[in-house]
Amino acid sequence: MSPFRRSKSGDVARERLRVVLMQDRISLAPQLMERMKEDLVDVISRYVDVDRGKIEVEWRRADGEPALVANIPVRSVRRSVASDDRASNRAL
């Protein structure tokens, strides 16, 4: 890496801190992850039939940025969804 393109170490520190705190805070609150999973499944189930037991949500790093990656196996798609885009409203 060219020395001219290196960012200031203060900026690097700030960015690393931001990321590490996000991960610390979420991992200190496992219930939070569980609740988020439940909510995700609830929303997605309005459109497709998912396997609640097999859902996975985890932290990954994408281009250095922390990202939440969800893997939600779909069992089937409801026929009504294709023809009715108000399915979500009805489900509510």
């Binding site: 200031k8 170490s9 203060g10 900026d11 520190a13 700030r14 801190l17 931001r18 705190l21």
Partner: peptide
Amino acid sequence: VDRGDMMDIGDILDV
């Protein structure tokens, strides 16, 4: 801080 090699107070208060 001035030359960018230390986080400033604002950075720390932000987080």
